[in-house]
């Protein structure tokens, strides 16, 4: 289990990193925290020609907080965001979800943007980004563009990022004053990939529910303030629409069950937060 050969570039600036991405035509991978990339390299599942290390680019780990939006740059580690002052107030969903991301040891190195770039269907951070209606800022030699998170994830570990682009930053909109937030997850073990994870945002007039771990990309629905059997029906429809599949950790039935039960309890928790 050793990586195949690759060239290594330690970029001193974002421009340098983008130069490499432009030159390599999709055969370069960005190395930030390495917590998703390194296992893939070691298993030789990924065999890029070049690995671009962005870990030394100055300033890439400084959070910008502007107008209630948290701008998380490419170098910011998950553990750093978890202890960001005021996160629980400004971004209660992130504060609730981050402890579920991997283990303390991988959070200490893994970056928030890396997790989003990796686009694992069970990833907590892609789910949060979709739930909050955040956006992804992509940079390339051609320029910059911002993509709505809900458009960004295109499939299993696949995104709208083009081959010469890298994620420069993520924008997580801050908590709305009149909304309750909750996150829940079910996995087999501590720190495992989620079998089902649910983010709920409840306002006076609406329920926004986002579900991870079931489909290739996080799924999001917006409902009026349903309750009782109407909510049960909506969750059941969602559970069936998500086209769950069997694997060695859970079968379709359990996944649908979890969408219904975890969905209900997460919405209930978010409603309590609102109240």
């Amino acid at each position: 289990m050793k990586p195949a050969l690759f060239d290594y570039v330690r970029a001193d600036s974002l421009d340098e990193a983008l130069d490499v991405l432009a030159a390599e035509q999709g055969d370069a991978r960005v190395l930030a925290g390495g917590q998703s990339l390194l296992p893939m390299l070691s298993m030789r599942l990924a065999r890029p020609r070049v690995v671009v290390d962005i870990g030394r680019i100055p300033g890439l780990d400084v959070i910008e907080a502007a107008k209630d939006v948290l701008v998380v740059p490419a170098g910011l580690r998950q553990a750093t965001l978890l202890v960001h002052p005021g996160l629980e107030r400004s971004h209660p969903l992130l504060a609730a979800a981050l402890p579920w991301v991997g283990h303390a040891q991988t959070r200490a190195r893994g970056t928030v943007c890396g997790s989003v770039a990796h686009a694992d269907p069970s990833g907590e951070l892609p789910l949060c980004l979709v739930a909050l209606g955040g956006s992804v800022r992509l940079a390339s030699k051609r320029g910059r563009r911002s993509v709505d998170a809900r458009e960004f994830f295109t499939g299993l570990m696949s995104t709208d990022r083009r081959e010469d682009e890298m994620i420069e930053a993520l924008a997580f909109p801050g908590a709305k004053r009149e909304a309750g937030y909750a996150f829940r997850e079910f996995g087999r073990r501590h720190g495992d990939f989620a079998i089902v994870s649910v983010a709920a945002i409840v306002t006076a007039v609406a329920i926004e529910i986002s579900v991870g771990g079931v489909n290739d990309v996080p799924a999001r629905r917006v409902w009026p303030r349903l309750d009782g059997s109407a909510l049960d029906d909506a969750l059941n429809t969602l559970a069936w629409e998500l086209d769950a599949r069997d694997d060695i950790h859970a079968d379709q039935r359990l996944r649908r069950d979890l969408v219904r039960s975890l969905g209900r309890s997460t919405i209930a928790e978010a409603s309590r937060c609102l109240a």
Binding site: R29, L37, M40, L45, A46, R47, P48, H118, A119, G155, L156, M157, S158, T159
Partner: peptide, 8 residues
């Protein structure tokens, strides 16, 4: 063939 970074 591949999915995301997993190419062979």
């Amino acid at each position: 063939l591949g999915v995301g970074p997993v190419k062979g």
